[in-house]
Design a protein around this nucleic acid. Structure first.
Length: 464
RNA sequence: GGCGCCAUAGCCAAGUGGUAAGGCAAAGGUCUGCAAAACCUUUAUUCCCCAGUUCGAGUCUGGGUGGCGCCUCCA
């Protein structure tokens, strides 16, 4: 049974979707004003893994991830570059796709953009005005937290606590300092859309509510994001959505922990700010993904060179296993299964079960990886003497489990003909017992960027 | 000040009150022309400290200590 830790109740709960066999998911996407950073990457990797696992468990998953393409940062950056907000958005949506693909993050079913959904947002704001939980002020339309008693439910705060610590902009024309903007009235030089109460642009929170409702309905199963979004973003989304519809907005709120860099919070001012674009130049992005999955998604993790290198070595172990099973699946003898073979085959479903049990426990990828490594060790030990059917079954299981975690997505790079020629020449030299020449050729292959290993199935080439 | 989280080996990390998974690193061995990979062996009598509950505590309770997050349109 799948259980999910729900931020709203602060407990692990049995997962029961609204509609049997289907899951609706909404993930807060990037504000497309720049390349996304390693912290974003964790949030995206988490929802991608959740999605993959739900699909693996047989659910038909519909996932929406928005692009926030209008806000202060967008406007500032577009002005700085002397381009339109729209051009900026186009550029970084494309860059998002490049970096997400590098990390094995599959595209959502729908990637709505905030600026393409202004009418939906206006309609939602009107509903809130009609219900008396929002009001029009001089500089915008605000949600009135005092008129919505459930405010604070998600983050576990109450209004008086929040007001005590609130730092507020005195210029804003709000009734209560905790009121938040649904709509911001037009300022000179900013993009603006017509609305019944005046030209302007939407607030951040209303975007997600409107797009989530449009594509997934008034109640969705899972909404993901990093912990910092719990307050105010998700609190506000929930308040405005539930105030408008009168029904539950999100059944399971899922929040991932933060990444520190060398034990320090990542920030531009600390000079430890890394975009994924920076990182994929230095590390194998698939290893970065494995690193991100090596701890539970709710724990904070520490990004260091040493830990990514450790993940790189672990990933190599999985790739080596796959390559070995692949060649054994091609070259191992075909014969009837012996009792030992049968025992090996019988252990495969048990390995899968261990993996599923781990993932069922609030997507415990660290524990699930433990199950994968244990299976790999057993298969590595048994397969060299096993028939083809065992190798095929092990290869299939390894591929199955790793793809649930979003690993094994990278294409094998093509090996240049000259490298293949050198490998062949080396085999001839080895047959002739000219090991000096064989070693020289292996060094030349290494210089060309490829590692050559001799295996019982013959020499194996891979990119270094 | 309010709300909340965390502490397990050299590093990372999982852990349902029943006797400490797994990965990386390190050391020794097997195999191999050598290397690599792979496998085997070794590496926490103990889970930050102190009390308590219990037949039994890494796990529950209380109190310390240390670290961290949110309360800023930061993922």
């Amino acid at each position: 049974m799948l259980t999910i830790y729900n931020t709203k109740t602060r407990k692990k709960e049995a997962f029961v979707p609204l509609r049997e066999g289907r899951v609706s998911m909404y993930a807060c996407g990037p504000t497309v004003y720049d390349f996304f950073h390693i912290g974003n990457a964790r949030a995206f990797t988490v929802f991608d893994t959740v999605r993959r696992y739900l699909a693996y468990r047989g659910y038909q998953v519909t996932m929406v991830q928005n692009f926030t393409d209008i806000d202060d940062k967008m406007i500032r950056r577009a002005n700085a570059e002397g381009i339109t907000v729209q051009d900026l958005a186009e550029r970084f949506i494309a860059e998002y796709k490049t970096d997400a693909a590098a990390l094995g993050i599959a595209p959502a079913d729908i990637h709505p953009r905030a600026t393409h959904h202004i009418p939906e947002m206006i309609a939602l704001i009107e509903r809130l005005l009609d219900k008396g939980v929002a009001y029009v002020a001089e500089d915008g339309v605000y949600f009135s937290v005092e008129d919505y008693p459930a405010y604070g439910q998600l983050s576990g705060r109450n209004l008086s606590d929040m007001e005590a610590g609130a730092r507020i902009d005195v210029d804003e024309k709000k009734k209560n300092p905790m009121d938040f903007a649904l709509w911001k009235m037009e300022k000179p030089g900013e993009p603006a859309w017509d609305a019944p109460w005046g030209r302007g642009r939407p607030g951040w929170h209303i975007e997600c509510s409107a797009m989530s409702m449009k594509y997934l309905g008034e109640t969705i199963d899972i909404h993901t994001g990093a912990t910092d979004l719990i307050f105010p973003h998700h609190e506000n989304e929930m308040a405005q959505s539930e105030a408008a519809t009168g029904c539950t907005f999100v059944r399971y709120w899922v929040h991932n922990g933060f990444i520190n860099i060398d034990n320090v919070k990542m920030s531009k001012s600390e000079g430890n700010f890394f975009t994924v674009r920076d990182i994929v130049g230095q590390y194998n992005p698939e290893a970065v993904r494995l690193f991100l999955l090596s701890a539970h998604y709710r724990s904070p993790i520490n990004f260091t060179r040493e830990l990514v290198q450790s993940a790189t070595a672990a990933l190599q172990r999985l790739h080596n296993a796959r390559d070995t099973y692949q060649s054994l699946a091609a070259s191992a003898p075909e014969r009837p299964l012996s009792p030992a073979d049968e025992a090996f085959m019988a252990a495969l479903p048990k390995a899968r079960e261990a993996f599923v049990t781990a993932m069922d426990d609030d997507f415990n990828t660290a524990d699930a990886l433990g199950a994968v490594y244990e299976f790999v060790r057993e298969a590595n030990r048994y397969l060299p003497a096993a028939p083809k059917a065992c190798a095929k079954a092990a290869l299939a299981l390894l591929g199955e489990l790793c793809s649930v975690l979003g690993l094994f997505y990278r294409q094998q790079s093509d090996i240049p003909q000259e490298v293949l020629d050198m490998a062949e020449a080396r085999q001839l030299a080895r047959k002739a017992r000219d090991f000096a020449e064989a070693d020289r050729l292996r060094a030349a292959i290494a210089a060309a960027g490829f590692a050559l290993e001799d295996t019982p199935q013959g020499p194996k080439l891979k990119k270094a």
